[in-house]
Design a protein around this nucleic acid. Structure first.
Lengths: 133, 133
DNA sequence: GCTGCACCTTCCCATCATGGGAAGGTCAAT
DNA sequence: ATTGACCTTCCCATGATGGGAAGGTGCAGC
């Protein structure tokens, strides 16, 4: 199957498939005599795996490890668990940071009347001299 | 004041100060006879403004607008409010997306026993054939 | 056979915020 | 004069994704 069909079937764009190959995430695809990449069922399943992992926010470098664990039938689930738990903690940290931003911003947005007058708590806050930082 | 001192005072790295200037976020700094950039109090206050806005997750392009509103004493707070509300909505969308990832991943991490056995619900989920997508 | 269209290839560029580092000029203190 | 800390510009890298150019291939219709 051509890269286009593999892309359609797996939900990963052809651009990204080539990119994953170049990044060492996927082994170099088989080539037909005309130089076209040739994919089979197994490849499509790997691509779907990658897509699902990306949907959960795993970075390429983590997916490399996840893929090799997936392929390894004698893996220890501990290794997968460790990888996933680390990523989860990471996600939660970033969520907390963004929530802190959103909380601050939400307070300011509520405080700003948002009419034609120039007074604006949002700008006041941004321009406020930091206390003693 | 040299760029290094402006960086220390404002909390924005010298690299980023130059970058903001090149991006049109800041007007070109004054130069001394030796070619060094020269900053004053006002510049440092703008840098702090930028830093605070970045801490709330505003993108450069939004900060350009925020800065011009900040400088404009006859602005309408409506414009600031609109900008901030849009960014807040954006933040909340991204938080929700990440929370969805974290929820899914959290369930899987809990389900994975994480020992030396190869069975692993995390990999099973990632490798699962999508139902009818 | 030729034309046209859809597909493939590689290569380069752009995003966005940030930093690393090189090559070279300046300044102040010893 | 040397040294070390600073400054300048320029190029490169990150990470995931896409745009687009230039050129080859394959198939369908005429």
């Amino acid at each position: 199957m051509n890269i286009g069909e593999a892309a359609r079937t797996s939900g990963v764009s052809a651009k990204m498939i080539r990119h994953y190959e170049a990044s060492g995430l996927l082994r170099p695809a088989a080539r037909r005599s005309n130089g076209y990449r040739d994919y089979g069922e197994v490849d499509v399943r790997e691509l779907q795996f990658i897509r699902r992992a990306r949907n959960m926010g795993f970075a390429t470098i983590e997916i490399i490890d996840l893929l090799s664990l997936w392929r390894d039938r004698s893996r220890a689930s501990r290794d997968v668990h460790h990888l996933a738990a680390r990523h989860l903690a990471d996600l939660e940290t970033r969520i907390a940071e963004m929530q802190a931003m959103a909380r601050t911003l939400g307070r300011l947005v509520t405080a700003c009347h948002g009419d034609e007058r120039p007074e604006c708590p949002i700008l006041d806050d941004l321009g406020r001299c930091p206390p003693s930082e």
